[in-house]
Amino acid sequence: MSDTPIVSAQGLVKNFRSVRALDGVDLEVARGQRFGIVGESGSGKSTLARLLLGLDRPDSGTVRIDGTLVDKNQRFVHKTAQMVFQDPMSSLDPRMRVRDIVAEPIRDDTNRVTELLDAVGLSKSVLDRYPHQFSGGQRQRIAIARALAPRPAVLVADEPVSALDVSVRAQILNLLLDLTVQFGLTLIFVSHDLSVIRHITDRVAVMRQGRIVETGPTEQIYAAAQHDYTRELLAAVPRLRYRPSRDR
């Protein structure tokens, strides 16, 4: 049982009008893995994330979550896999209170909502507040609490830190790492930022123009990328030229 992949996709093709967003993607994510999908805008990475959760239908190909076909059993998918989005302002309804936002995937239950807020480091005093009263990092915490509500096994995070400042980015990355351990989550982390991907994932797929051009253990890809495009991406990542020495 545990050696079957928790998420698998075969031959995914998706067109938007005449543009081919996905051009035959195969993917397998093992249980408990932290899987990175990296690519630039237009690479199809966000489209892939949506197809994995059944939020959009592929033109051809199949997605299975925990062995179940995604378009056959939507209810099962929503319980098993959840999503966190890029822009924590747009992903929270400005007219809903925190308690209703977090409870959206479940039945209203203040105890459960308080428990979830606690897990993401927010106190229950925020229950009746609205999204605009929070900073970007806090909003992303609320969005993560909502995603955790149905006790999913898989968390898909689509650029969850790219709208955040560096210090807040580090806080949210720490939180995601803690939560994957605490709840035994499988994490699928979609990003354009190779340094973030390197830090948080143990396996990565590099996407370009709707295809996966390279996939493998993250450290291996960083140490010895096989594909030219991966090397180009790696070379373009801005690096801190000067950094403080650390006493470890």
Partner: peptide, 13 residues
């Protein structure tokens, strides 16, 4: 077009 609608769909609503 907002992500909170997408989130609601992901939540099974």
């Amino acid at each position: 077009a907002t992500e909170y609608v997408l989130a609601a769909r992901a939540a099974g609503r």
